[in-house]
Amino acid sequence: MRGSLVGTAVTLAAGALLTAAMTTASASPPSTAPKAEPAKPVLVDCFWNRHVRPADFILACGDGNSRLLGLHWSQWGRQAATAVGVNAVNDCKPYCAAGRFHSYRVTVRLDQPRPWKKHPDVEHYTRMSLTYEGARPEGFKQVVTYPLWD
Protein backbone atom coordinates (compact mmCIF):
# COMPACT_ATOMS: atom_id res chain seq x y z
CA MET A 1 0.00 0.00 0.00
CA ARG A 2 2.87 2.30 0.79
CA GLY A 3 4.19 1.90 -2.80
CA SER A 4 0.76 2.73 -4.12
CA LEU A 5 0.64 5.96 -2.09
CA VAL A 6 4.08 7.03 -3.29
CA GLY A 7 3.12 6.30 -6.90
CA THR A 8 -0.10 8.27 -6.55
CA ALA A 9 1.75 11.18 -4.94
CA VAL A 10 4.34 11.25 -7.73
CA THR A 11 1.60 11.09 -10.38
CA LEU A 12 -0.34 13.92 -8.73
CA ALA A 13 2.79 16.06 -8.36
CA ALA A 14 3.74 15.52 -12.00
CA GLY A 15 0.20 16.40 -13.08
CA ALA A 16 0.26 19.58 -11.00
CA LEU A 17 3.59 20.63 -12.48
CA LEU A 18 2.36 19.92 -16.01
CA THR A 19 -0.83 21.90 -15.40
CA ALA A 20 1.16 24.83 -13.98
CA ALA A 21 3.52 24.82 -16.96
CA MET A 22 0.65 24.72 -19.47
CA THR A 23 -1.26 27.46 -17.66
CA THR A 24 1.82 29.68 -17.60
CA ALA A 25 2.48 29.08 -21.28
CA SER A 26 -1.10 29.81 -22.31
CA ALA A 27 -1.27 32.89 -20.12
CA SER A 28 1.83 34.48 -21.65
CA PRO A 29 1.30 37.68 -23.64
CA PRO A 30 0.99 37.50 -27.44
CA SER A 31 4.23 37.35 -29.39
CA THR A 32 5.90 40.69 -29.98
CA ALA A 33 8.02 39.37 -32.85
CA PRO A 34 8.11 41.86 -35.74
CA LYS A 35 5.80 41.11 -38.64
CA ALA A 36 7.46 40.19 -41.92
CA GLU A 37 8.01 43.23 -44.11
CA PRO A 38 6.29 43.02 -47.52
CA ALA A 39 8.62 42.03 -50.35
CA LYS A 40 10.23 44.94 -52.16
CA PRO A 41 9.51 45.45 -55.88
CA VAL A 42 11.63 43.74 -58.51
CA LEU A 43 13.04 44.83 -61.86
CA VAL A 44 11.80 42.66 -64.75
CA ASP A 45 14.18 42.09 -67.67
CA CYS A 46 13.67 41.26 -71.37
CA PHE A 47 13.34 37.55 -70.59
CA TRP A 48 10.73 38.07 -67.83
CA ASN A 49 13.26 37.35 -65.07
CA ARG A 50 13.04 39.18 -61.74
CA HIS A 51 16.04 41.08 -60.42
CA VAL A 52 16.90 42.90 -57.23
CA ARG A 53 19.92 45.22 -57.42
CA PRO A 54 21.26 43.87 -60.75
CA ALA A 55 24.81 44.84 -61.72
CA ASP A 56 23.87 45.03 -65.42
CA PHE A 57 20.59 45.52 -67.30
CA ILE A 58 19.73 45.51 -71.03
CA LEU A 59 17.60 48.48 -72.09
CA ALA A 60 17.32 47.72 -75.83
CA CYS A 61 15.94 44.19 -75.73
CA GLY A 62 15.71 43.74 -79.49
CA ASP A 63 19.35 44.37 -80.35
CA GLY A 64 21.22 45.07 -77.11
CA ASN A 65 22.41 48.45 -78.38
CA SER A 66 21.77 50.15 -75.04
CA ARG A 67 22.60 48.62 -71.69
CA LEU A 68 23.38 49.61 -68.14
CA LEU A 69 26.66 48.36 -66.71
CA GLY A 70 28.41 48.47 -63.34
CA LEU A 71 25.31 49.47 -61.39
CA HIS A 72 25.88 50.31 -57.71
CA TRP A 73 22.59 50.55 -55.83
CA SER A 74 22.35 52.98 -52.93
CA GLN A 75 18.63 52.36 -52.38
CA TRP A 76 16.12 49.60 -53.15
CA GLY A 77 12.89 50.44 -51.38
CA ARG A 78 9.13 50.01 -51.48
CA GLN A 79 8.62 53.13 -53.63
CA ALA A 80 11.89 53.65 -55.52
CA ALA A 81 15.41 52.40 -56.20
CA THR A 82 18.51 54.42 -57.08
CA ALA A 83 21.88 53.46 -58.59
CA VAL A 84 24.84 54.94 -60.38
CA GLY A 85 26.53 53.26 -63.32
CA VAL A 86 27.24 53.50 -67.03
CA ASN A 87 24.88 53.50 -70.00
CA ALA A 88 26.72 51.84 -72.90
CA VAL A 89 25.06 52.98 -76.14
CA ASN A 90 25.89 51.91 -79.71
CA ASP A 91 26.18 54.91 -82.04
CA CYS A 92 25.02 52.71 -84.97
CA LYS A 93 27.31 54.58 -87.39
CA PRO A 94 27.27 53.81 -90.25
CA TYR A 95 24.83 51.08 -89.09
CA CYS A 96 24.41 49.25 -85.79
CA ALA A 97 26.44 46.13 -86.65
CA ALA A 98 29.41 48.35 -87.54
CA GLY A 99 28.80 50.92 -84.78
CA ARG A 100 30.82 51.60 -81.63
CA PHE A 101 29.65 51.58 -78.03
CA HIS A 102 30.15 54.76 -76.02
CA SER A 103 29.87 54.90 -72.23
CA TYR A 104 27.98 57.62 -70.36
CA ARG A 105 27.82 58.02 -66.57
CA VAL A 106 24.22 57.92 -65.33
CA THR A 107 22.10 57.91 -62.23
CA VAL A 108 19.30 55.36 -62.54
CA ARG A 109 16.00 55.75 -60.74
CA LEU A 110 13.26 53.09 -60.68
CA ASP A 111 9.81 53.96 -59.38
CA GLN A 112 6.05 53.55 -59.75
CA PRO A 113 5.81 49.99 -58.42
CA ARG A 114 2.71 48.09 -59.53
CA PRO A 115 1.56 44.45 -59.43
CA TRP A 116 3.19 42.48 -62.25
CA LYS A 117 0.61 41.15 -64.74
CA LYS A 118 2.48 37.85 -65.10
CA HIS A 119 2.64 37.39 -61.28
CA PRO A 120 0.08 39.72 -59.62
CA ASP A 121 1.41 38.84 -56.16
CA VAL A 122 4.78 40.40 -57.12
CA GLU A 123 5.29 44.15 -57.43
CA HIS A 124 7.71 45.46 -60.04
CA TYR A 125 9.00 48.91 -60.92
CA THR A 126 7.23 50.27 -64.00
CA ARG A 127 9.35 53.33 -64.80
CA MET A 128 13.07 54.00 -65.18
CA SER A 129 14.71 57.42 -65.40
CA LEU A 130 18.31 57.93 -66.52
CA THR A 131 20.03 61.18 -65.60
CA TYR A 132 23.23 61.73 -67.59
CA GLU A 133 25.92 63.28 -65.41
CA GLY A 134 27.87 64.88 -68.24
CA ALA A 135 28.11 63.77 -71.84
CA ARG A 136 25.12 61.95 -73.26
CA PRO A 137 24.22 60.18 -76.51
CA GLU A 138 23.47 62.42 -79.48
CA GLY A 139 19.86 63.62 -79.39
CA PHE A 140 19.25 62.56 -75.77
CA LYS A 141 18.00 64.95 -73.10
CA GLN A 142 19.80 65.12 -69.76
CA VAL A 143 16.96 63.08 -68.20
CA VAL A 144 15.36 60.26 -70.18
CA THR A 145 12.39 58.31 -68.80
CA TYR A 146 11.35 54.89 -70.01
CA PRO A 147 8.25 52.83 -69.21
CA LEU A 148 9.27 49.31 -68.16
CA TRP A 149 7.58 46.23 -69.58
CA ASP A 150 4.90 44.38 -67.68
Rank of each mutant, 00 (worst) to 15 (best):
Q142W: 03
S129K: 10
Y125W: 12
A21F: 10
E123W: 01
T23F: 06
V86C: 03
L12R: 03
G7N: 14
T82H: 08
M128T: 04
N49D: 12
A36H: 06
G70N: 15
A21L: 11
V143D: 02
A36I: 05
A80L: 13
G64N: 05
Q112L: 10
K93Y: 10
T131D: 05
T8R: 14
A39H: 09
T82V: 14
A83V: 03
T107Y: 08
T11M: 15
V6G: 03
F47P: 00
M1A: 12
M1N: 09
E138M: 08
E37H: 08
G77S: 15
P120I: 05
G77M: 06
N65M: 01
W48L: 05
W73M: 04
Q112A: 14
S74G: 13
V10S: 06
W73L: 08
E133R: 14
Y104L: 10
D63L: 08
S28A: 15
Y95C: 06
R2W: 10
T23I: 09
G64F: 08
S103N: 15
Y104A: 07
E37D: 09
L17E: 10
G134Y: 07
W116D: 00
W149L: 13
L148G: 06
R109G: 01
L18R: 04
T23P: 01
R67T: 01
A27H: 14
